[in-house]
């Protein structure tokens, strides 16, 4: 299966890149845009057919390496 992982800074943690992009959008006239958050997108192939096992494995990957849970949160899609 294909795994899609999004990692972003936790809410409440200042995202300087998001802020810079927000200002740029504003200066381009996109006045309705707010709260820009920048993150990382990763995808990988997982050789696993059992959904529960796959979810557990992906969670372990995120906790151990893909996200730093001191500052980041993650969400995963398994398709």
């Amino acid at each position: 299966m294909k795994v899609k992982i999004h990692v972003t800074l936790k809410q409440g943690i200042l995202d300087p890149q998001g802020k810079a992009i927000e200002h740029a959008l504003d200066s381009l006239g996109f006045k309705h845009a707010a709260n820009v958050r920048v993150g990382k997108y990763m995808e990988l192939d997982l050789d696993q057919t059992d959904m529960a096992k796959a979810e557990a494995e992906v969670k372990a990957m995120c906790e151990k390496l893909l996200a730093n849970t001191v500052i980041e949160e993650y969400r995963c899609e398994l398709v």
Binding site: I13, L14, P16, Q17, A20, V70, I71
Partner: peptide
Amino acid sequence: PGAMLRNESL
């Protein structure tokens, strides 16, 4: 303990 974020100034 803790973590590093990108510099505030980028």
